[in-house]
């Protein structure tokens, strides 16, 4: 297991004020020069932008530098459709004082996006329970200390809402 300890607490002291429903601003990523900056730049525009192999279009891990499919090393960050299905989900009950603002357990989802990427995120708003594996979600964004963070909005199961049929090919609901 990864049980690494660090002393990186410099921005995690101070006040608990924040615009996010869940976390203190001190947890906002430092985006300038970060390996994920294209994702954050896209998110600032309300777009979900993720890395692909520029040669063969394989969806890549967020920090992947060489394509495991074709060996190419050109990475193309592309806008993708903000939809996905739940690959795994947990309700986090432990709420670390000083970091978590919410007063109740909160969801953490591993979402398999329509693009093929998997991305861990929480929900756009507080939820009483986590969606089930296989449930469809829309991707929207939270504002955490001025940084927009991908988050999931569970589908309202009303008949007028159309869900992506393509997604059901990758995983059937439980």
């Amino acid at each position: 297991m990864s049980a690494g300890l660090s002393t990186e607490t410099s921005r995690e002291t101070g006040t608990m004020t924040g615009s996010d429903w869940l976390l203190a601003d001190s947890l906002a990523p430092i985006i300038e020069g970060d390996v994920l900056q294209p994702l954050y730049d896209g998110a600032a525009l309300g777009q979900l932008v993720l890395p692909f192999c520029a040669s063969c279009s394989l969806p890549l891990d967020l920090e992947q530098q060489v394509c495991d499919g074709c060996g190419g090393s050109d990475i193309a960050w592309r806008r993708v459709e903000p939809v996905g299905i739940v690959h795994a989900a947990t309700m986090m009950h432990r709420r670390e004082p000083g970091l978590v603002l919410a007063s109740a357990p909160y969801p953490i989802l591993d979402v398999e996006l329509g693009s093929g990427h998997r991305l861990v995120m929480t929900t756009a708003d507080a939820e009483l329970s986590a969606p089930a594996i296989g449930d469809p979600v829309h991707i929207t964004f939270r504002d955490l200390g001025g940084v927009r963070i991908p988050s999931a909005r569970p589908h309202n199961p009303e008949p007028t809402v159309t869900t992506s049929t393509a997604l059901s090919q990758t995983e059937a609901p439980a």
Partner: peptide, 20 residues
């Protein structure tokens, strides 16, 4: 453990999503 992990890269994004 909750306070460790930093604010960069994939881990930074996960921590900003409540993965503490």
């Amino acid at each position: 453990y909750a306070h460790s992990g930093g604010q960069s890269g994939t881990r930074g994004l996960e921590r900003a999503s409540g993965v503490l």
